[in-house]
């Protein structure tokens, strides 16, 4: 029972991190209808910047973190402006999605090559301290991740509700021509979306590599790729869905890993496939995802 509680708490805290990454995928999809397959790559890139600034340049953690988040946001904007924009005009949504695959191959190769066999720390201000909840000891860093994720998700949700940006974003994706006639500055909407999404990915990345993880290594890319099933399970155009999908993937992964001995007949690597099996099941029942409103196809 204790083990179960601890797995659930762990799953939720990991899931919250996935939710942040998935939220970035959702933000870009909502404003452009493009599935950004390079999103996990941006996470690794930004986290690598943080780690390099912290270890290599010996900057204080918060300075390094801000630098990583900022530089990634700028890279996001650059990708939007230079690489993705030509596709908006043609409404070539699927082509743009495949383009981001090419982009992810480039970024992944370079970051993987840079990381090599190292395990880099991205700074760890909370150290390895743990606190005990429901007689389970939980790393403080994980709780901080959960708290940060909740605050950021709430803030984003409120902002979408209260500001004009939410409306502009939906308008931009649904009907760019009318939206621009109505005075929505599409390029600004997509640019801000890419910046926010990239920044969120790096925040998530920092938590992903801090205690109890050993640090940033080449496996983080594969881990962060789970954000794609998370976003799809929740529904690509739903912020609520990103949270639910993130939690679902986090819990699935932690539970299948935690009970791998009981699930031994499924093999030891089952926890890696589990989120994708979940995604396939969800797509079969609801092609738009749990909270999604429209199918992710425009052929």
């Amino acid at each position: 029972m204790i083990e179960f509680t601890s797995l659930i708490v762990n799953g939720i805290s990991v899931g919250a991190i996935y939710a942040l990454v998935a939220l970035g995928v959702v933000i870009i999809f909502k404003s452009t209808e493009i599935v950004n397959f390079a999103h996990p790559s941006l996470l690794v890139f930004g986290t690598l910047i943080v780690a390099t600034a912290y270890n290599g340049l010996h900057l204080p953690f918060y300075v390094a973190a801000i630098a990583g988040v900022g530089i990634s946001a700028l890279l996001g904007v650059a990708i939007d402006r230079v690489l993705v924009r030509p596709f908006y005009k043609k409404r070539a949504i699927i082509a743009a999605g495949i383009m981001t695959i090419g982009l992810s191959i480039v970024i992944d190769t370079l970051t993987t090559n840079q990381i090599g066999a190292q395990i880099l720390s991205a700074g760890n201000p909370l150290g390895s301290s743990t606190i005990s909840i429901l007689s389970t000891s939980i790393p403080l860093a994980r709780l901080a991740a959960l708290a940060t994720a909740i605050v950021l998700l709430m803030a984003f949700y409120l902002w979408l509700q209260r500001s004009d940006f939410g409306v502009a974003m939906r308008a931009a994706a649904d009907d760019p021509e009318t939206a621009s006639l109505m005075g929505v500055r599409l390029s600004r909407v997509t640019m801000i979306s890419w910046a926010i999404a990239s920044a969120l990915a790096v925040v998530a990345g920092i938590f992903l590599v801090s205690y109890p993880s050993a640090g940033l290594d080449v496996s983080v890319g594969a881990v962060s790729l789970q954000a794609i099933p998370a976003a799809i399970i929740g529904g690509l155009d739903s912020t609520t869905g990103a949270v639910v999908g993130g939690l679902a993937v986090g819990l699935t992964q932690v539970l299948t890993l935690g009970y791998q001995h009981q699930l031994a007949f499924l093999g030891l690597s089952f926890s890696q496939a589990a989120p994708y099996i979940l995604m396939l099941l969800v797509l079969l029942i609801r092609p738009a995802g749990l909270f999604g409103t429209k199918e992710v196809s425009r052929v």
């Binding site: 599935v35 949504i93 699927i94 999605g97 794609i228 099933p229 799809i232 499924l266 093999g267 030891l268 690597s269 089952f270 890696q272 496939a273 994708y276 099996i277 995604m279 396939l280 797509l283 079969l284 092609p287 199918e295 992710v296 196809s297 425009r298 052929v299």
Partner: peptide
């Protein structure tokens, strides 16, 4: 039957799961 019910990106994403299921099966 799954593939013919879906199209475009939905199918792409559904088939993405085949890759990971495949690697898991190969290991198992």
């Amino acid at each position: 039957p799954i593939a013919s019910r879906m199209k475009g990106l939905t199918l792409g994403l559904a088939t993405l799961s085949l890759v990971f299921i495949g690697v898991w099966l190969l290991n198992t």
